[in-house]
Design a protein around this nucleic acid. Sequence first.
DNA 1: AAATCGTAGACCTACGATTG
DNA 2: CAATCGTAGGTCTACGATTT
Length: 252
Amino acid sequence: MEKRKWLCEIEKVNGDDEYSEECIEEEEAALILLDMSNTKSLDKKTAMALREQQRKRLENRTRLRLRLNLNLNPHVKGISKSIPKALLPSMRGHEEILALFMKSPKAPLFPRITSLLGLIKECCSMPYEKQLTKTDLRDDQARLSIKKAYVEQYLLNLLNEDENIEEGIPVIVYDENGKTYPMMFKLWSSKIYVLTHGWKTFYIDSKLYYHDDFITSVTLWTFRHLRTARLCFVIFTKTSPAVEPVTRRRIK
DNA sequence: AAATCGTAGACCTACGATTG
DNA sequence: CAATCGTAGGTCTACGATTT
């Protein structure tokens, strides 16, 4: 109910003269139809119209989720920039978060993948950026380690009761093209959180490799799928010239 | 045999305690 | 108060174990 209320407020602010329960149902229907368009044969025109409709809806949803994210991550602080006053009067008091969302030069709060539009059931986690290490990209390791603090702060509260991180949680990982990779999200020996199984396929497909002259980093988001309710990750990759080699010394 | 999993230990870093 | 030291806890790597 709270979500609906927010959505309606958002639509008002954005200039929609009318909103109603129907508009929300209409949105859900559009999202489901669009999802169908990914798997069934719709004619191009219909699919494009649905995509456009979904894009518009997503803009509203994004703002809604931002608000919901505030409740999950109320401690995010530190940036204070000007916010367009007309945006969301009811978000007063959260200017810092809005600034973060709107101005951050880093990763956006939400991954921009067309095929994911409207399929995100619960709000995304905050983005997590990691500079990949040698072992993250080693063929004989086949795993991505994820910082404990990030997992405990942002991801564990997204888990359902029946999901046991120590036993491993099957997840779907999306790359920036929307391609999916089944992986296992797991806590190893109460110390390291990792993504295993499909990670190797992912970095091979993404043409990632370790080199002293380059920094390869990933940005990761987590969300729950609208239809399957399954835990999903989105991983974007980035390679840039390195200022210094990114290795750790090890004496042996 | 190759791929993947799991862990021990080296290394790093943040932070509190101590000292000048 | 700033610099230094000690330490706990987190991250990364190497390598043995297990699975395919």
